[in-house]
Amino acid sequence: MGPQMGYDRAITVFSPDGRLFQVEYAREAVKRGTTAIGIKSSEGVVLLVDKRITSNLLIPESIEKIFKIDDHIAIATSGLVADSRVLVDRARLECQINKLTYDEPIRVEGLAKRISDHKQQYTQYGGVRPYGAALLIAGVDNNGARLFETDPSGALVEYLATAIGEGRDTVLKLLEEEIDPEKRISFEDSIFLGLKCLYNIAKDKLNAETIEIGYILIKDAIVRKMDPKDVREYVEKVKYLYKDEINKEDKE
Rank of each mutant, 00 (worst) to 15 (best):
Q4E: 13
M5N: 09
M5K: 10
G6V: 00
Y7G: 03
I11H: 10
T12L: 04
P16N: 14
G18L: 00
G18Y: 02
G18E: 03
L20N: 04
V23I: 14
A26Y: 04
E28A: 09
A29Y: 10
V30P: 13
V30A: 15
K31S: 15
T35Y: 07
I37Y: 03
I39P: 10
E43F: 06
E43V: 04
V45Q: 03
L48E: 01
L48P: 00
V49N: 09
V49W: 06
D50S: 01
R52N: 12
R52C: 04
R52G: 01
R52A: 11
R52Y: 08
S55D: 12
L57M: 09
K65S: 14
F67I: 02
K68E: 13
I69F: 04
I69L: 08
I69M: 08
H72D: 07
H72W: 11
H72I: 11
A74S: 13
A74Y: 08
I75T: 05
T77K: 09
S78E: 00
R85C: 02
V86K: 09
V86G: 06
L87M: 10
L93K: 11
E94N: 07
Q96F: 10
N98V: 14
K99V: 11
E104H: 05
E104C: 09
E104Y: 08
R107Q: 12
R107G: 15
V108R: 02
V108P: 10
A112K: 09
A112Y: 05
K113M: 11
K113P: 02
K113D: 05
I115E: 05
D117A: 12
Y125H: 14
G127V: 11
G127K: 12
V128F: 15
Y131S: 00
Y131R: 03
A133G: 04
A134W: 09
L135I: 13
I137E: 06
A138M: 07
D141R: 04
D141Y: 05
N142W: 06
L147A: 07
L147F: 06
L147V: 10
E149Q: 15
A155W: 04
L156V: 13
L156G: 10
L160A: 14
T162F: 11
I164N: 01
G165N: 06
G167M: 07
R168F: 04
D169E: 14
K173S: 15
E177G: 07
D180Y: 01
I185G: 09
I185P: 11
I191N: 08
F192Q: 07
L193T: 09
L193D: 02
L193N: 04
G194K: 12
Y199P: 03
D204G: 05
K205F: 02
L206A: 02
A208H: 12
T210Y: 11
T210P: 00
T210E: 15
I211P: 01
G214P: 01
Y215S: 14
Y215P: 06
I216H: 01
L217H: 01
L217M: 06
L217D: 01
I218L: 10
K219N: 09
K219G: 00
D220G: 06
D220S: 05
A221Q: 11
K225N: 05
M226S: 14
D230W: 01
E233F: 01
E233R: 03
V235M: 12
V238D: 00
L241Y: 10
Y242E: 08
I246P: 02
K248Y: 13
D250V: 03
K251D: 11
E252S: 13
